[in-house]
């Protein structure tokens, strides 16, 4: 077997990584308190319920802060963090998108598609996640403006619940996808989200840098 050189190649900037883990932590707080309110809300006495809603509100603000920063970073950050990197707007991006779809449909046989930072298929999902997350923040903030007596049967609260399930679905799919890609690509994706660098062979880097 020929000698291969592996290179740690920087893909994620520090702010993107920091915001990613910040969002993971605050979203966990949101999901746990949200699930308690949703499933145990009626069994809790008044004080506990209000207390939980209060914690949910504080974590909601903290999550919204991370989301706002990530959203601004989509437009102001380095290239690997920009909206252009998430969405398949270039020809190369569209090619990788179809390669990824084909790779999934072919049940992960063959070589996995090669991309630098965001996989364009995942990128679309991340964009949808950002939108749903904003929707959650806005419906949550609006719900809190309603008088407590009106909240229970408000349509807003139902939308907020629907968003909850979409986010749970996203997280499950995201974790499964990271797991699968880690298995087939072996680039140290999770470590890359910690220290910023994915592992590529020098040939892969040549191929990547040859692209426009």
């Amino acid at each position: 077997m020929a000698e291969r050189r592996y290179i740690l190649y920087p893909v994620w900037d520090p702010l993107l990584r920091g915001v990613h883990w910040w969002n993971v932590l605050t979203l966990c707080g949101q999901l746990v308190t949200g699930a308690f309110i949703l499933y145990l809300g009626e069994e809790l006495d008044h004080m506990d319920h209000e207390g939980l809603v209060g914690i949910h509100l504080v974590f909601g603000y903290l999550f919204a802060a991370g989301l706002l920063v990530r959203t601004l970073w989509l437009f102001t950050g380095p290239e690997s963090a920009r909206l252009r990197d998430l969405l398949p707007v270039t020809r190369a991006g569209r090619r990788v998108l179809w390669e990824t779809v084909r790779f999934y449909l072919g049940l992960l046989r063959g070589t996995p598609p090669l991309y630098r930072a965001h996989n364009p298929f995942a990128g679309i999902v991340y964009c949808i996640f950002f939108l749903v997350a904003w929707f959650q923040v806005v419906t949550g903030a609006m719900t809190l403006k309603l008088a407590a007596a009106l909240r229970e049967d408000s349509a807003l609260l139902e939308l907020h619940e629907a968003g909850f399930f979409l986010i749970v679905l996203f997280i499950a799919a995201h974790l499964a996808a990271v797991f699968i890609h880690e298995l087939v690509e072996r680039r140290g994706l999770v470590s890359a989200m910690v220290h910023g660098c994915k592992i590529f062979t020098d040939e892969e880097i040549e191929a990547l840098e040859g692209e426009p």
Binding site: Y61, A65, G66, L68, V69, A141, M142, K145
Partner: peptide, 13 residues
């Protein structure tokens, strides 16, 4: 007045 929370969040961040 409904938009003030955006500013609050931005200041914290």
């Amino acid at each position: 007045g409904n938009l003030t929370f955006i500013g609050a969040v931005a200041i914290i961040a």
